[in-house]
Simulated assay, not measured.
Amino acid sequence: MTVAENVAYGLTVNGMPKKQAAEKAGEGLKMVGLEGFGARLPSELSGGQQQRVAVARAVVLEPEVLLLDEPLSNLDAKLRRHVREEIRKIQQELNLTAVYVTHDQEEAMAVSDRIIVMKNAEIAQEGTPHDLYERPISAFIADFIGDSNLVDCDILSTDEASTEIRLGSKQIHVPIGTSLKGQAQAVLRPHHLRLDVTNRDVPFQGEVTYAAYLGNEIQYTVQGDFGELFVINQAVGQPISVGQTVGIDISIEDLRLVPCDA
């Protein structure tokens, strides 16, 4: 079968007139960026293009439940973003349930109302993308959903609204309560850390050991008072040199506490 016939196959099997099925197939191919490819054979397409044909063939059926298992894994980054946006748009327009399996955390957060993170065939945490990123319940989730620095700390005291912890050699007041006691880990997101080249009024110190300019941000590795930290800085016009000593300022209100993983 041609690409168009592949996409229209489910429609024609379900009794849709061939002309209408061909029109729907054309719409599906346009959605996945393959407009004009309908007359080709699947063997004439790349692996990524074949994968997009499969997505189109499923979506044109307008199913009540759509299962997508790594549907974009063979696509380049720009096309992956386009197709996932179209899948999300169709899912909302058709009001269908989609179960979307992926190892790409950014992709999961972009398309999901709710995310289930699996670990060793068990549910590690379930919630909205915001819940999993901002309120991880374990070091595994904090490390898996987005970049994070996990730093050992000691919980000194806590109540419903605040917690006193020892981080490195400093005692810090954190404006959140916790049920944790004793040793724990502080979750420090890379963009919640600020590097201060003046070293004034900053509780922690470190040395920049690596810097990578990525256009819209600079990524740093800093060896500091409590180990190696990954830091993302949006101030691309003011780069910090490798080997420079810096102060490390932590956004305390964004700090989260999780138990030490066994």
Rank of each mutant, 00 (worst) to 15 (best):
D104T: 12
V99Q: 11
N74F: 06
I115S: 01
E126L: 10
L94G: 00
E164H: 15
Q125R: 11
P203M: 06
D104C: 10
H82N: 14
I176H: 15
E70S: 04
G168Y: 01
E70Q: 02
I115V: 14
L195V: 02
Q171Y: 00
I176W: 13
P129L: 01
L195D: 07
T158Y: 10
E126S: 08
T163E: 05
I172D: 12
I123D: 07
T97K: 02
Q205G: 05
I165L: 07
P129I: 00
E160K: 11
E107Y: 03
I116Y: 07
E126H: 13
I155E: 07
I141L: 00
I137D: 10
R88T: 12
A139P: 06
I155C: 11
L79Y: 03
A186M: 06
H173W: 10
S112P: 04
A110F: 06
V187G: 10
V197M: 11
A161P: 02
A110P: 09
R88M: 11
H192A: 15
Q92S: 14
D201Q: 14
K78A: 14
V101P: 06
I172R: 07
H82G: 00
H103L: 02
D154I: 00
C153E: 09
L72H: 03
Q205P: 00
D201Y: 11
M109Y: 08
N149S: 08
E164G: 08
L79S: 09
S73D: 08
G146T: 07
A110C: 03
P203N: 09
R84Y: 11
D143M: 06
Q91V: 01
A139M: 08
S179F: 02
V151E: 09
R200S: 09
L68H: 00
F144L: 08
I116K: 00
T102F: 07
A142Y: 00
I155N: 02
N149W: 06
E86G: 07
V83Y: 10
H173E: 13
F144C: 09
I137M: 11
M118H: 10
Q91G: 02
E160H: 12
T163K: 01
V197P: 15
L193P: 03
E93H: 12
I165K: 02
Q185S: 11
R80S: 12
I90K: 06
D76C: 08
V99I: 15
Q92G: 03
E164L: 14
T128F: 00
E122S: 14
P175M: 10
S157C: 03
Q92P: 10
D152C: 05
L156R: 13
F140W: 02
I165H: 01
H130L: 13
I123Y: 03
D131I: 06
T198I: 01
V83M: 09
V151T: 10
E106L: 13
D76I: 04
G146Q: 09
R80P: 05
D143W: 05
S157W: 04
S73W: 03
S73G: 14
I145K: 13
L75P: 02
D104W: 02
Q105E: 09
V99K: 12
H130I: 15
L96F: 02
R166H: 04
D69F: 08
G206A: 07
P203F: 01
D69S: 09
Y133I: 08
L167H: 02
